[in-house]
Amino acid sequence: MVKLNVNLGKGLTLKNPVLTASGTFGFGEEYSPFIDLERLGGFIVKGTTLEAREGNPYPRMAETPSGMLNAVGLQNKGVDYFIEHIYPRIAGLDTEILVNVSGKSVEDYAETARRLSLLENIHAIELNISCPNVKQGGMAYGTTCDGASEVVSAVRQAWPRHLMVKLSPNVTSIKDIALAVEGAGADSISLINTLLGMAVDVERRRPYLSTITGGLSGPAVRPVAVRMVWQVAKAVKVPVVGLGGIVSGRDALEFIMAGASAIQVGTANFINPESTIKVLEEIEEFCERQGIKSLDEIRGII
């Protein structure tokens, strides 16, 4: 049997490298009719903000070649709702539950993180400084080194446990942003969030999305994501978590060979609700076939 457990540092150990991407897996419960959530390394719940957010107007989605655009805009009921209503239902699961945190100001991010720090079974948060679908905050912080450092430093003060920071690919130098968040205290770095994109309905002569532009995800973005993970993993010392269009074990292994310690399955959850388990089993099969005893043997070999 291949050894799949991964230590991402600062108290975050995964039983295997398969996580889910925020915004594609609800609060886990949506997928419990289809898979055993406790087989996952962990799951990352929908982006959470200090106050409830209504998100963007419909239409929020358009299918594109091998991918989709979304413009959900961080619709969520706020961190207090999560703490009171959602957390008690999922906290007992034997898997890591990470909360994706977003905000419209540095103070918002820090306060949301502080409130979550009262929850014993949340061992890590994923800081979203990369959402392309909200006007304030989100990607505004993730596209400059100073902005990224500022928000990561503030949350670092408010959050004592594992701090994962999710990067936007919509930047000139992903390596510089990664070094900035590492310097500001990130314990791990996940990438990539969606690529800013746009599609036009030519019959109606208007964009498909209410917001005109949105975030592109799915297999279409995978080569971009693998390239960025490789660049970042070469540059930083903290563990890197790779995501972007993973639908199979082979896809996941691309990221691992490019240097990722763990991976997230995102859009594939919409295609096949058992995608996460499929990815996990295909990683295991590959390792058995190739006689790999630990993912350390192949991690970052490129």
Binding site: G23, T24, F25, G26, E30, Y31, K46, E54, G55, P57, Y58, P59, R60, M61, A62, M68, N70, V72, Q75, N269, F270, P273
Partner: peptide
């Protein structure tokens, strides 16, 4: 029949505006 992705309440794409919000 709003356009949807997951069909499971996870992606939040198919929302309709209601008296209780999206």
């Amino acid at each position: 029949e709003n356009m949807m992705a997951c069909g499971l309440g996870a992606c939040l794409c198919c929302v309709e505006k209601t008296v209780k919000g999206n």
